[in-house]
């Protein structure tokens, strides 16, 4: 059964994230850091009420996954909100972790997900949309459009595409006003 939550309530919840969830992931068995994979698997078992579910998420070896894993940790906190309890089988969350979250994690400083209003909203909406939950007071179209508007991946892509041309244009415009440029050089005849 779907529970109701307003988007601001969920944003508030995310921004309350305890700092432990932002700690560095452990690099190996004996490291002091957070054992991210264990945390993820635990939370998935917890929200699905199936404590016996086998380890769902595993990771192929990749050099540095700090940003990805720290966002996973934040997500674990976010998913602890009651709206996600029994919001579907545990396995449904796996593609989210290894897909969209992985992608955005490298584009935003991890802390921003819990400090910046808009990033917290984006995270909330990503999770809600993945669980097919529509925030209270919105309809499917509004919810989709809203997520679209603050989508980091899309925003970064747009910025990267337009940036070089924009920068060059602005540099020319600035230079056009620079005193050195406006002094120009000798004119030898009338035009």
């Amino acid at each position: 059964m779907q529970k109701a939550v307003t988007i601001s309530e969920l944003i508030h919840h995310i921004k309350q994230c305890p700092s432990e969830f932002l700690d560095m992931p452990a690099r190996g068995e004996n490291d002091d850091g957070v054992h991210t994979l264990a945390l993820v698997n635990d939370i998935l078992r917890y929200i699905c009420h199936c404590p016996t579910t086998p380890c769902l998420l595993t990771v192929e070896g990749k050099a540095d996954k700090t940003a990805e894993w720290r966002l996973w940790q934040v997500c674990c906190w976010a998913l602890s909100h009651p709206v996600f309890f029994e919001a579907g089988p545990a396995a449904q969350w796996i593609p989210l972790f290894s897909g969209r979250l992985d992608e955005v994690s490298t584009l935003v400083e991890t802390e921003k997900w819990v400090t910046d209003e808009e990033r917290a909203e984006e995270l909330a909406r990503i999770l809600l949309s993945h669980a097919a939950i529509i925030p209270e007071g919105e309809d499917a179209t509004i919810a989709a459009d809203r997520l679209d508007a603050i989508d980091t991946v899309k925003r970064m892509k747009v910025i990267e595409q337009t940036r070089q041309a924009e920068l060059r244009t602005q540099e020319i415009r600035r230079q056009m006003a620079a005193r050195a440029a406006r002094e120009a050089a000798n004119a030898y005849g009338r035009e």
Binding site: T66, S105, T106, L107, V108, E109, Q164
Partner: peptide, 20 residues
């Protein structure tokens, strides 16, 4: 701010492009 978000991404590689 556009520049800021590009630069602040955790995995951002220091672009060697002039003017940035």
């Amino acid at each position: 701010p556009r520049e800021e978000v590009l630069q602040n991404a955790p995995n951002h590689q220091e672009a060697d492009s002039p003017g940035r």
